[in-house]
């Protein structure tokens, strides 16, 4: 355990398992889904609605949309995309990027989003988390953390899609956010993101141990071994995947089947 930051009794063994969730992460820039490496060098992948629909039909558990240039322009352009997606995608949709105010969050929820992910605005003004949580419930507030490694046991929270350093320690920030009513944490490793070289296991482990809310691990998945390693060693609640899905390296059904075979509880589709 790092720095004694544990808020709850630390148990590495999950005696009672929660079904593990598979989330498709769609980073959006303008009208396109894009994918980069370490959140840079973006390549065009395709149309957000078509991809979301495909992943839904293939059996993904949730969709995560991230407007990755929104903070730069101080607005989120995902309203129309979300409205379109929720016409025929009947699973939870989380939307983030450029959410600065309670009314930004309200507009996205009205457009069909189920959860709102906040990073930049929360680092600048943490009370925004409390405001959204108070108005719409903790279950719809996701703290998005872009974590960059400083050492083996120390990470700093970044914003503006991994470009700007906040100076906040990731573990302390995660705990502070939980006390403000966050319902989930989306934890992206800037170092691993898009590399397909595996997750930052120490990071995920440290955060899952430090908070009592569900943690979504993101960044670095390139194959099944990465995922089973992640689950076995760090006990997150969900994984957000982009690379392996967008480049069709793995299918959702094969991931689900593999996890079932490894005795990891996942949603079963009859």
């Amino acid at each position: 355990m790092e720095n004694g930051v544990c808020a709850i009794p630390f148990s590495t063994v999950r005696l009672v398992m929660r079904p593990f969730r598979l989330i498709a992460r769609l980073d959006v820039k303008g009208p396109n889904v894009v994918k980069g490496v370490q959140l840079e060098g973006l390549r065009k992948i395709g149309n957000p609605n078509i991809l979301a629909q495909r992943y839904y039909v293939d059996g993904i558990d949730e969709i995560l949309y991230m407007d990755i240039v929104a903070s730069l322009y101080e607005r989120n352009n995902l309203l129309d995309i979300v409205k379109e997606t929720t016409k025929d995608v009947f699973i939870p949709v989380t939307v983030g990027g450029g959410v600065r105010t309670l009314s930004d969050a309200a507009a996205l929820l009205r457009a069909g989003a189920d959860k709102i992910a906040v990073n930049t605005a929360a680092l600048k003004r943490p009370e925004i988390l409390h405001e959204i949580s108070d108005a719409f419930g903790a279950q719809c507030v996701v703290l998005s953390i872009e974590a960059k490694r400083e050492s083996n046991s120390n990470w700093t929270a970044y914003y503006d899609n991994g470009r700007e350093k906040s100076g906040k320690n990731v573990l302390e920030w995660a705990q502070q956010a939980c006390s403000l009513g966050v319902g989930e944490i989306l934890l992206t490793s800037v170092d691993q993101e898009g590399t397909a070289k595996g997750f930052d296991l120490k990071l995920v482990q440290a955060v899952t141990a430090a908070v009592s809310v569900p943690v979504i691990a993101c960044g670095g998945m390139g194959n099944m071994v990465h995922l089973t390693d992640l689950i076995e060693k760090t006990h997150p609640d969900a994984v957000a995947m982009a690379h392996v899905l967008h480049y069709e390296k793995l299918t959702i059904s094969s991931i689900r089947k593999h996890l079932s075979g490894q005795k990891v509880p996942v949603r079963e589709i009859f």
Binding site: R18, Q139, G183, P214
Partner: peptide
């Protein structure tokens, strides 16, 4: 309840798919 009958802490909110 934030602690179950096995005295494990329970994650709240309950978010996700369940049977």
């Amino acid at each position: 309840p934030s602690v179950n009958n096995l005295r494990n802490s329970v994650k709240i909110p309950h978010i996700g798919w369940n049977a």
